[in-house]
Design a protein around this nucleic acid. Structure first.
Lengths: 301, 301
DNA sequence: TAAAAATACTCCATAGGTATTTTAT
DNA sequence: ATAAAATACCTATGGAGTATTTTTA
């Protein structure tokens, strides 16, 4: 039962006149007669009771009509939607992100993207970098927002931002309000570290920074969320080495100081499958880059 | 977007291999390549990312796949159902009936019919004879069960049963337990008549019976349901002239007597549109005739 | 008798086949 | 180097057109 026959059937059922229905279909009357006969043979059912004066639907025709209409409408709808998905007007994106990206413009980027693409559903999944790469390769994720990694061959990546680590210090601490701090000054401080389990990349980088400066940091607290890190600093439980973006959280009783000289940086990368290319990924990437750059331009507003 | 292309698309989406999909579709590989390309042009979307080593769905393809499956399934379902409707296996019947038909085997006929056609929905509408004819002609009814009428040209009819009128008399009444009664004996009795509004045919016939015997019946009660007629008789409010089938109700304290000689009969006719013929109508007619005949054979069991 | 559906036939578009080329790993 | 998709080309089915016949109200 081809779509064409259903289209002809619906036209005839609505006009109840072969000539008029044929005109509406932009064909001549004989092929419509033939087509209807063919459809009737295919379903082994007479669909119309007809003579030279009138055309009426049979019970079987009455049964088919609403179904044919539904099928035709679903068909054109599916075609239109598919076009829209290809155009990037409509669709579904699954985006992974590391927790710190929330303080680096990602929420703003999402808001802008949703405004541009109201028909697109975006699902956000908080995962660490390694997990995101895995999910990407299994095509369970369309885009990842990760810390610096070596992306595999079939994964593209784009650096969104790179920012220095700062020291977060509680007010009243001996180092508080210092403009610059040497990493070595933190030697005997209680360090609040982000969980190695949740972000091994970050954890390892801090560790290596200290080691290369000649000391092993004393780890007191290991927490699973950046807000917890800042909270503990705020409560005077120690100092923390955090990406600069964390300044924007506005946590009370916490001051931030730069390191003397060049230090390792915290990176935010977007990663996605090289093929097949989902046009929405490119579009979202644009929003991300814009939002991230905006954040960088107004570092403390 | 023809059904054929959707079939090919689903096959390829499931096999993810042109050769295997083509085999499954019983065609060769090249026409499948051409067909997929054609579909992609129609929806202006690449549906598969493909090279000589692998075939994968794009986001647009992922979007289309479930919809294509649904459309194909609805299509074959609609075709099958339409065939069934034409065969009389499945469908929908709207049946009108006059109240008295409930005591003439119609419920039994329906039960038998439903057993034979579990996929058929039967809607019953209690209407008087004239209303049924109107509804039939507007195709809002498939079958009517009416009292004797002159059916119009485009309406077929079949006499289901014809039975004498009896006199229903309360126990203890002077005429009670009489085997035969002359109509004239009812001259001064209080007659309980069925509503002229609900059944003008019946009402008029009783009236004419009396008139032709030389008297005008005294009308005391005019009720809208046969059970009400019998109830009033049972309560000693009068006598009634009722179709013989009413004996089967088993109303207590009511006896039934025949009229002397030939009297007018109460008929039950089935009526239906001559065209288009719904096969279910013929089938239900068969059940009705059987059930009605059964009733006639066992008049008092 | 007249309006409309069905039939007869012709033509051409296109679905499908075979042979071959291109492509990507 | 090889497996697999794309392309080229041919054939034949069948969809659509015109002319005509049949049907029935």
């Amino acid at each position: 039962m081809e779509t064409r026959l259903l289209r002809y059937f619906v036209a005839l059922a609505e006009e109840l006149h072969f000539g008029r229905a044929a005109t509406r279909l932009s064909i001549s009357q004989p092929p419509l007669s033939v087509a209807i006969k063919q459809l009737e043979e295919q379903v082994q059912a007479q669909l119309f009771e007809r003579n030279s004066k009138e055309v009426r639907l049979t019970a079987a025709g009455e049964h088919l009509l609403p179904r044919a209409r539904q099928i035709l409408s679903l068909t054109s709808q599916a075609a239109q939607e598919t076009t829209d998905v290809a155009r990037g007007v409509r669709g579904h994106l699954r985006v992974g992100f590391v927790g710190s990206s929330l303080y680096r413009g990602v929420p703003q980027a999402l808001e802008a993207f949703q405004k541009q693409h109201p028909q697109v559903r975006v699902d956000m999944l908080e995962l660490n970098s390694a997990e995101q790469l895995q999910e990407l390769q299994q095509a369970r994720l369309d885009l990842g927002l990760v810390h610096s990694v070596q992306p595999p061959e079939d994964i593209s990546s784009q650096m969104l931002m790179e920012e220095p680590f700062l020291v977060a210090i509680p007010e009243g601490h001996r180092l508080s309000s210092r403009k610059e701090i040497d990493l070595l000054e933190l030697k005997d401080e209680r360090l609040i570290l982000f969980s190695a389990q949740v972000s091994p990349v970050y954890h390892q980088r801090i560790y290596q920074m200290c080691q290369s400066r000649g000391f092993t940091p004393e780890i007191r607290h290991e927490v699973r969320h950046w807000l917890s890190v800042l909270s503990l600093v705020s409560l005077g439980q120690g100092v923390a080495i955090v990406p600069a973006a964390l300044q924007r959280v506005g946590m009370p009783r916490v001051t931030f100081s730069q390191f003397v000289g060049d230090q390792a940086t915290s990176e935010l990368l977007a990663v996605w499958r090289r093929k097949p290319t989902n046009p929405l990924v490119q579009s979202l990437l644009g929003c991300l880059q814009t939002a991230v750059d905006d954040i960088a331009v107004h570092p403390l507003d």
